[in-house]
Design a protein around this nucleic acid. Structure first.
Length: 347
RNA sequence: GGCGCGGUGGCAGAGUGGUCAUGCAGCGGACUGCAACUCCGUUAACGCCGGUUCGAUUCCGACCCGCGCCU
């Protein structure tokens, strides 16, 4: 077993380096990345499902033009707000960019808060068909006619494993599972290369919150030696204050006019992924007259807090995270130390 | 000063003589092609004092506070 392990693969030491900076929203990831770029030969790749959209700058806290000039970010502004982008798309695109950066002898620095994208990049994804608008439309119509319970019943009959993991109320995931089933003729769970390991007593648990093991590599693992830094304030309260303050700053910077402009295009609607981003969704509702300005601000800030909480849920169980306190006086030094990187490298 | 109405968890808001809604926020969690998505779970209250009662958030009384009307 020990001999087999190293036989077919190159030793880890020969893999080129890469750095992750992960963290909840408003924890200072961008600042840290910009500073690291001054100390190390890094090129930044954004890992953010909202910054991919052109014309969505204020609400996504995209780096300023000056910052981008100083340290270009890849995978920003690559989509129209009318587009749908996916974790699989991200993995494909990120691998291309990482290869380019490595080819010129530099280090890919992946910075962002979309934890699903980090996971997809790190562990790969099973070979599943991508989304099919036609099939989804069919399933939506079927749900209209027969009810959502019937759809979940269909999944339970065809794929009990997936049905146990997907709550009947989770329509988005239910649609996806049935979509794969229709497209391939096979249960989605049979196509997962690393199906989640459900605890033996899972059958006793009826609330669908099964405890699963961290997914093993689902495709190819990432061919890099990765330093995975995670940053967040020690206190939740601190993060909440930063989130509130930043939202107010976004308002001062013209968040509402940005969204007004997007609405005026005429080709966007509130069900698109871009318009469901934190801040944009609430602004759209407010500008449509659904709530007054004060309620809009409260909802926007609350939605951001909830986003941060979900990001922290990912991060808490992240196996190889090296933690940094985002309030540290010299977080760059902390980061270099944690990463075991020498500052003798030149940017 | 008198009369009337009302005081319910961080907020909104039902309701009941005994297991005391619900929504939002908060907290915990899940999450393999929409992931800043979607979903699951969950903490927490009856203004104050006394009385009636086996038992009061609920009934009675006093008091405090708020709103309205009257003098």
């Amino acid at each position: 077993m020990n001999a087999v392990g190293s036989a077919g693969q190159p030793a880890a030491a020969v893999l080129p380096p890469a750095i992750f900076i992960m963290g909840p929203t408003a924890s200072g990831k961008t600042d840290l990345a910009l500073q690291l770029c001054k100390r190390l030969p890094c090129d930044i790749i954004s890992v953010d499902s909202a910054m991919i959209y052109r014309g969505m700058d204020i609400g996504t806290a995209k780096p300023s033009a000056a910052e981008l000039a100083q340290a270009p970010h890849r995978l920003i502004d690559i989509c129209s707000p009318t587009d749908t982008y996916s974790a699989a798309d991200f993995r494909r695109d990120a691998l291309v960019e990482m290869a380019k950066i490595t080819a010129v002898g530099r280090i890919p620095l992946l910075v962002g808060g979309t934890m699903m994208y980090f996971k997809a990049l790190l562990h790969g994804m099973s070979d599943l068909p991508s989304a099919s608008p036609q099939v989804r439309e069919q399933l939506m119509q079927q749900a209209q006619l027969q009810g959502w319970e019937a759809l979940h019943g269909e999944l339970a009959a065809a794929d009990p494993v997936a049905a146990r993991l997907i709550h009947p109320n989770n329509r988005q995931r239910l649609i996806r599972a049935l979509e794969v089933q229709r497209l391939t003729g096979q249960p989605i769970s049979s196509l997962w290369q690393a199906p989640p390991a459900v605890f033996a007593n899972a059958a006793d648990n009826e609330d669908y919150t099964y405890v699963t093991r961290w997914q093993a590599d689902a495709g190819s693992s990432l061919p890099y030696t990765v330093v995975q830094l995670a940053t967040a304030p020690q206190q939740r309260k601190t993060l909440h204050e930063r989130i509130h303050q930043r939202f107010l700053t976004m308002l001062d910077s013209g968040l509402l006019s940005e969204v007004e402009g997007l609405m005026a295009r005429g080709d966007l609607n509130p069900s698109m992924p871009s318009m469901r981003c934190v801040g944009y969704r609430q602004a759209w509702e407010h500008l449509s007259g659904a709530c007054d300005h004060a309620a809009f601000v409260d909802r926007g800030v609350a939605a951001t807090r909830q986003l941060a909480k979900r990001q922290l849920t990912w991060l808490r169980k992240w196996p190889d995270a090296l933690w940094l306190d985002s309030d540290s006086k010299d977080i760059v030094a902390d980061a270099l130390k944690k990463a075991g990187l020498s500052t003798t490298l030149k940017p």
